[in-house]
Write a protein that binds this DNA or RNA. Structure first.
Lengths: 140, 140
DNA sequence: AATAAAAATGTAATTATTACAAATATGTAA
DNA sequence: TTACATATTTGTAATAATTACATTTTTATT
């Protein structure tokens, strides 16, 4: 997704495509690394020296309210962000702290207790040890 | 679960069953209301006037590390706690902010991308509007 | 160029959580 | 019981993520 289509996507959602907004969305789309606010800020301030953290917060909140991104609350102390709003789960490795995406098919899943509830968002968070870390631990 | 069996459960997990610890666990088991730290503290300080919030934090961390409770990170700003460690999902109503338990059968769910990963914990968080609030909104 | 509206900025405030040292309580051996 | 070591609790201060808000800057339009 290039800057032009990002710009169009923002306009479609009634968000004016300012430079900072485009860069933040571009970063989320390109990196796919589920960054926290600090990582986004630290990376982008290299390109936009006047960027402030408040702008990052404002922008992410704006994107979230528009449904353009998802807030990942898999960590207990900070929010992470994901521009991929399609259905997928997140796995946090408790050894290396990396967050992985995984495919999960929720359609047809057996659920009860939410009859007549309106479900707007589904978050699937798994935690454990990733394959890389298991491998490393086993060989050391 | 009475205080004696709570006490035994703690001992089994190498946690000395102090008065505060038993009361905190008892509260979690009885209330089942997914309280945050402040709610636990505010309720229990009535019975234990010397209770400090730090003790509540210490105790909950201890319980969590022992696997006796689950930390619910469905909210973006605070942790909630659940003594029910059996497999179930949590639904947060964005209107009344209540957190509901629901039954979910994860066994046999279609997943890929976590081959050779060790999964230790599975959290299912849904958000939306609960039936009560939908009903209320429709009639007003 | 003037103006109005929107966006970005910087600082201060808020709030959940943790760190840590001091005080208190508990259990055990003499 | 008393002395002592250990564990628990407490209170305060520090940390860190997030938000509030007023000011400044940018943008778009006339």
């Amino acid at each position: 997704m290039d800057r032009n289509s990002i710009s169009n996507q923002l306009i479609k959602n009634n968000i004016k495509p300012s430079y900072a907004r485009i860069k933040i969305m571009e970063y989320l789309i390109q990196q796919k690394n589920h960054p926290n606010v600090d990582e986004i800020y630290t990376e982008l301030v290299k390109d936009i020296p006047t960027l402030s953290k408040t702008t990052v917060y404002n922008t992410l909140n704006l994107f979230n309210e528009a449904g353009l991104i998802k807030v990942i609350t898999i960590e207990e102390n900070e929010a992470r962000f994901d521009a991929d709003t399609s259905e997928h789960g997140h796995f946090k490795c408790e050894n290396c702290n990396k967050i992985y995406d995984f495919f999960v098919k929720l359609e047809g899943i057996e659920i009860s207790g939410l009859e007549n509830f309106k479900i707007r968002q589904k978050d699937i968070f798994f935690k454990g040890i990733c394959a890389k870390c298991i491998n490393y631990i086993n060989n050391n």
